[in-house]
């Protein structure tokens, strides 16, 4: 798998493959990683490009303690956070506190359920391996409004601390709480409709 590049064994590049091979080797995986989180092919491509360029500049710092892919992903993760930060600056959140019409439809005015959750109980172990389920998940995720998706990406997919997520998105802790709650509620509802309660139980 690892071709030897005898022509370029520069010191400080221990274990690092030749940069001209990076795109073929890791491009698709990095793109998928970025695309899932950013949900936009152009932004994902830009993030991958920035990652390779940053990796090239920092190639002497590669320690060889982690795999190349892991190293590249750690750079990509910072680029993804940067991308969300830029987007948040361009379009700051205003009045997030206004009620969410979709969420409101779920409840009666007194706060009790209007549309109760279904009785489905997922078999976690089986679902984890089922690629069709994750296709449906991505479909549901792609339907989230941008801000909710950004909050979910950073906090849940990237596992940033809530405080850090607030900083990146430029929102208060309360706002972030509302955004994450809505994102989770919508994903749950979408998965219920499209997977757990499909008309003909597969």
């Amino acid at each position: 798998m690892t071709p030897v590049h005898e022509d370029r064994p520069t010191p400080g590049e221990r274990g690092l493959s030749a940069p001209e091979d990076w795109v073929d080797r890791y491009g698709d995986e990095l793109f998928r990683y970025a695309y899932l989180r950013l949900r936009d092919p152009a932004s994902a491509e830009d993030a991958v490009q920035e990652t390779f360029l940053a990796a090239f500049r920092a190639r002497s710092e590669f320690q060889g303690r982690s795999s190349e892919l892991t190293w590249l992903v750690s750079i990509l993760r910072r680029k993804i956070v940067d991308c969300f930060r830029r987007a948040a600056r361009e379009q700051p959140v205003v009045d997030i506190e206004t009620e969410d019409p979709e969420a409101d439809g779920l409840f009666q005015p007194n706060g009790w359920w209007r549309v109760k959750p279904g009785p489905w109980v997922p078999d976690a172990g089986a679902l984890l391996e089922q690629s069709e389920f994750w296709d449906v998940f991505q479909g549901c995720f792609s339907r989230l409004p941008p801000r909710l998706a950004a909050a979910f990406s950073l906090r849940v997919l990237e596992e940033l601390e809530p405080q850090e997520t607030c900083k990146v998105l430029g929102v208060t802790a309360t706002n972030l709480g509302v955004m994450l709650h809505r994102a989770r509620a919508r994903l749950r509802r979408c998965l219920e409709a499209r997977w757990f309660q499909r008309p003909e139980g597969e």
Partner: peptide, 25 residues
């Protein structure tokens, strides 16, 4: 990062990134 299947880098993006790396190189 290892997600099997799914979208891949487009040929155009691949070339563009390849070219930008070469320029640095």
């Amino acid at each position: 990062a290892r997600l099997p299947g799914g979208p891949s880098l487009s040929a155009e993006a691949r070339e563009r990134i390849q070219a930008s790396l070469k320029k640095r190189d």
